[in-house]
Computed example of a mutant assay.
Amino acid sequence: MRAGLLIRLVVFALLVAFLVNPEAFAFVFAPLASNGQPVIYNQGSLLDLTLNHLMIVLIATTLATLVAVGLAILVTRPFGAEFLPLSRSLANVGQTFPPVAVLALAVPMLGFGTAPTLVALFLYGLLPIFENTLTGLTGLRGPVTEAARGMGMTGLQRLTRVELPLALPVILAGVRLSTVISLATATIGSTVAARTLGEVIIAGLLSGNTAFVLQGGLIVGVLAVLIYDGLSAIERTLSRRIGQRARA
Rank of each mutant, 00 (worst) to 15 (best):
Q215Y: 04
T61I: 04
I129D: 09
I40S: 10
G142V: 13
L121V: 02
G36V: 04
P22Y: 06
R149W: 03
A60E: 00
V57E: 01
L121W: 01
G221W: 00
L15A: 02
G152H: 03
D229I: 01
M153Q: 09
L32M: 14
G70V: 04
N42L: 08
P99F: 06
R240S: 10
I201T: 13
V222I: 06
V213F: 09
G198C: 12
V16K: 01
G208S: 05
L71V: 05
R88M: 15
G4A: 08
Q37T: 10
N42T: 13
S190R: 08
T138D: 14
L121T: 05
T210D: 08
L121P: 04
A167M: 11
L127W: 09
I171V: 14
I227W: 03
A101Q: 03
F130V: 08
P128K: 08
S182T: 09
G36Y: 12
S178F: 06
I73C: 10
V220R: 00
L110V: 01
I56F: 02
P169A: 14
A115V: 00
F29G: 00
G150L: 04
L177K: 06
L47S: 08
E199Q: 15
N209A: 07
F122M: 01
L14N: 01
A81T: 12
F212Y: 15
V16A: 11
L183M: 10
V102Q: 07
G139W: 11
A184Q: 12
R240V: 14
D229P: 00
V220N: 02
E199Y: 11
G230Q: 05
L54M: 05
L32N: 05
F112M: 12
G150A: 12
I188R: 10
L54K: 00
R77P: 07
F25E: 03
A26Q: 05
M1C: 12
P169S: 11
I234F: 10
L14H: 00
M109E: 05
L156T: 13
A33H: 08
G4Q: 08
M55F: 09
S89R: 09
P85Q: 10
R149C: 03
V100Q: 10
I188M: 11
L177P: 02
L71D: 06
G94V: 04
T133A: 14
N21R: 05
T191H: 11
R241A: 11
L121F: 02
M55T: 03
F112P: 02
V28F: 01
L110P: 00
V225K: 03
G155N: 14
A13W: 02
A148S: 12
A115S: 06
Y41V: 08
L63A: 01
R77M: 15
L137R: 11
F122C: 02
V192E: 10
G198S: 06
T185S: 14
P31R: 06
T179H: 03
F79D: 15
G221S: 06
F122R: 05
T76Q: 14
R245W: 14
R247M: 07
V93Y: 12
V162Y: 11
G113K: 01
M55W: 11
L183D: 13
A233Q: 07
L206V: 10
P38D: 14
A68Q: 07
V16T: 03
T187Q: 12
Q157K: 09
R8G: 03
G111V: 00
N92H: 10
L156I: 11
F18Y: 01
I59L: 01
G243R: 08
M1Q: 15
P38W: 12
